[in-house]
Structures are given as structure tokens and as C-alpha cells.
Design a protein around this nucleic acid. Structure first.
Lengths: 242, 242
DNA sequence: CAAGAATTAATCGTATACACTTTTGGCGGG
DNA sequence: CCCGCCAAAAGTGTATACGATTAATTCTTG
């Protein structure tokens, strides 16, 4: 074992965390969570050297994480110009919501078919967490908790393929909300979740599926897509009326 | 522009193909197509050094391609043990077909809504290609042409998110068919495609969606999933009756 | 002679080096 | 004073080096 002989006074190259989770997974998760929490906003640059510094690894692993993120449409890799957080276009937004309604409509019957008292209890616990998040000072993660409800449902449906699709759509929705959403009414959203759990517990497939569709339509209706101006009105963006 | 000064007699490092398509995309596509054509079968090893040789690039680019393929569930990356073509489990298989029925059910109304004479003509051209592939000696690509019909429909639906999902499911189905399918009746499958185009041209959303669902169920019914023997019967595999 | 241990070969994981591209800042001409 | 050109800096793309892990082989030994 002949490692590069240690130079005098050289500090150990900082194998900071154990490798129980591979470094690239840490990087992936950090960025993923930051996007979900809306701390990282669309368009923000993700320069490799900086990420290397932050995570204490070489560019090899940073790039690996960035490429996976790009594969999940969370970051955009512009050749020779670096990675940025992705900005879903209005067109993509519409397509994502159509897809999401389709996926969640497919999930609902499966989730109801698999429903057990224990699982209903899990859903109710999630509802309680949502409720608390509503009134808490740190509303940071309201969006995340609300999203969590949908992912939970997908897991209960017992179909990992559909669950993976929904996870991707949820992360893209997070970007969309960051970009476009007007404040909106999260109380109403929460109440719809509660109503959904009631219908699921009752075994009403038709009703639950219909409500889910309405719920997603309401969510989409809150999005304020910029008018189809090809040239985005820079003046308005800068707060200059004329 | 000071490139490393050429040593006497050194041959140009073989920038063999132009970079019009990046090398990693070439590698990705080659493997993807080989899986679709069922030349690459589940479990086959994909050693990096060999791929480097074949494509004339370093391991960096080969690994990039392999990681994208892993992200699409086409290859499996086993830590320290190399990449192999993925082998969907019976459980995954069921989940994939459920997902596929959901996606294609969502696609059908969109495709019909967008239908124009020109688009119907495109579908009919694809049907003709299928028909020819049926009788041709090289049946290699029958599977691909049949799959192409579904992808075409997804494109006509005008939703790239759903189309991307379906593309992923189709490639995984290709692996499934390679693993499990009994020869089956491709004539019947082709006839269902023809009937589908008729219903689309007629604008019958209900009928087309129902037929699509039946079509996919028939496809799934052709899959012979191994009995849930935890211990696969080695004796049977070796052709020993008792 | 078979089973286990030790060696060797093959292959993977990560870091690093260097060329190239893009961007930035400065400079001179109009 | 502004616009376009040029040089420097920053940052990305790919190759390569080398340690580490796994698989294969050989060598022992009961």
C-alpha cells in the first residue's frame, strides 16, 4: 500500500463523513431537498468548484450528482456553461399537470384497494403534521409536508414505478410553484387532503378519484403562468410601470 | 492554442467521429437500441474497458452513459462489480404494466383530440411498416416497430412528459419480453393496432381507450412469469424431468 | 485428491491534470 | 462617450493515474 507519501504538515484530505452513504448521494439529496424547500430557486447557478469545496470531494462526484439531477429534470446542464436549477416553461408546466392528474388518478384506486386501518392511521398522522405546519412560524416546509401526502399515497398504492414518476413530477412542481405561484390558499388545500382521507377510508373509489382530480386542478389554477408574451416584459419585472 | 506538442511519430489521438453528437450520447443510444432490438439480453455484462475500446473514448464518457442508462432502469450498476443489463423482476413487471396502462389511457384522449388527417396518415404509415416487418425475413425489429406505434401515439398526444414516461416503460417492457415472453401472436397484436387507428380516426375516445387497455392486457397475458418458486427449479432448467 | 488460503489479474471508484470554451475586464479607435 | 477587439480569468470536458475492491487462479495442506 503505497499512498502518495504524506508531505510534512499536510492535513488528512478530510474524509469528513463516513462513506456509509456515497458522497454523490449526499450531494444529490442536498440539492434535491434545497429545491423542494424552495431555497434553491430556478436559474440559480451551481458551479462545480463551489460544490466541490462544500462537500469536500472532487469534481468527479459533483458531476455525477449533477447528471443524475439533470436526468430528473431538476437541474439543467448547459454545455460548457455550467449547471443551473431548471426553470420549467409554461408549456412544460401544463404538460406536467396533465401527467400528474393521470398518475394520481391511477394511484388512487390502488391506494384504496390496499387500504388498511394501519395505513389510514399513517395518512391521518401526515394530516396532523400538515395541520401543525400550517400554523407554525416556520412555514418553510409547508410545501414539503403537503407534497409528502401525495408521495405517501403513492407508496401505499404499492407501485414503485408510479411512485417514482410522481416523485419526479412533485419535484418539478416545486420548481413551478417557486417560479409562478401566487400565495394561494393552503388552508383550502389541507382541507381537501382531509376530505380525501375520509373518502379513502370509506372506500369510495369514484369519489376519491374525482376529488383528487379537482384538487390538482385547483392547485394548477393557482399557478399564474406569464402571458404568452414571447418577450417577457422586463420592465414589469423590474417594477417599472411604463 | 497550445496543445501538447506532438511527439515524433505520434498518431493523432483518434478523434474518430466528429463531436456533432457527443460521444456519451452515441454510447447511450447504441446500448439502448441493442436492448430494444433484443440483441443485448438481461444479465449481460457491460465492462467499461471493452466499451472504451469499442467507442474510442475514455472511461469517463462510458461511465457517463452507463449512469444515464441506470437512471432509466436499462442497466444495473453493481458497486465494484460492473454494469449489467437490467433484469426486471416479476414484481416490477406487474408494476410496469399497471403504470403503462395508466399512461396510455391518459395519452389516448389527448392523441384523439389532436388528431388531424395528416397525423392519421402518419399512423397508417407506421402500420404499413409493421405489416411489412411481420412478413419480412428479418423479424429482428418487429418488436421495435410495434413499440414504435405506441411511442408515435404518445408524441401525437403532444405531452412530452407522458411521452418520456412511456418511452421508459417501453424500454423496460423490451427487457421483460426478452426475459419472459413466449413467442405469442404478433399478427393479433398488429390487428389491434389497426383497429385502434380506425377508432382514433373516428374520434371514439371511449372505444379507443378501452381497446388500448385490452390490448395491453393481452400483451401482459402473454408474459410467462416464472412461478413464485423462491428456489428456481434447477432440475427443470437443466432439462431433467425428475 | 479436495477444500481452503494466498496470490494474481481484472475491473471499479475517485482524484487530478490539462486543453478548450465561455465569460469578464480592459484598451484603443471611432 | 460608446462600441468592438483582445487578453486574462474562470469554469467546463475529457483523459489518465492510481488505490481499492472483487473475481479468478494457484498453491498449499489435511
Amino acid at each position: 500500500m503505497k499512498r502518495r507519501q504524506p508531505i510534512a504538515g499536510e492535513i488528512k484530505p478530510a474524509r469528513r463523513r463516513d462513506a456509509s452513504v456515497s458522497a454523490d448521494a449526499r450531494i444529490y439529496d442536498s440539492i434535491f431537498q434545497a429545491v423542494m424547500m424552495q431555497r434553491l430557486k430556478p436559474g440559480m447557478k451551481l458551479p462545480e468548484p463551489q460544490l466541490c469545496e462544500l462537500f469536500g470531494v472532487s469534481r468527479t462526484l459533483v458531476r455525477k450528482a449533477l447528471q443524475r439531477l439533470a436526468g430528473d429534470y431538476i437541474v439543467e446542464l448547459r454545455p460548457n456553461r455550467g449547471a443551473i436549477v431548471a426553470s420549467p416553461t409554461p408549456e412544460e408546466t401544463r404538460e406536467i399537470f396533465v401527467a400528474r392528474r393521470a398518475i394520481e388518478a391511477a394511484i388512487m384506486p390502488l391506494a384504496i384497494a390496499n387500504a388498511t386501518p394501519a395505513r389510514i392511521a399513517v395518512l391521518k398522522k401526515a394530516l396532523k403534521a400538515e395541520h401543525d405546519a400550517l400554523h407554525n412560524p416556520t412555514q418553510l416546509d409547508w410545501a414539503q409536508r403537503a407534497g409528502n401526502f401525495h408521495v405517501l399515497l403513492a407508496e401505499q398504492a404499492g407501485n414503485r414505478v408510479l411512485a417514482a414518476f410522481l416523485t419526479q413530477l412533485m419535484s418539478r412542481c416545486s420548481l413551478i410553484v417557486t417560479l409562478y405561484e401566487v400565495p394561494g390558499d393552503s388552508v383550502c388545500e389541507h382541507e381537501e387532503h382531509e376530505q380525501l382521507v375520509k373518502l379513502i377510508a370509506f372506500g369510495d373509489v369514484k369519489g376519491a378519484t374525482a376529488l383528487m382530480d379537482a384538487h390538482l386542478c385547483a392547485l394548477e389554477a393557482r399557478i399564474r403562468l406569464p402571458k404568452l408574451d414571447d418577450a417577457p416584459d422586463l420592465g414589469a419585472l423590474l417594477g417599472i410601470s411604463a
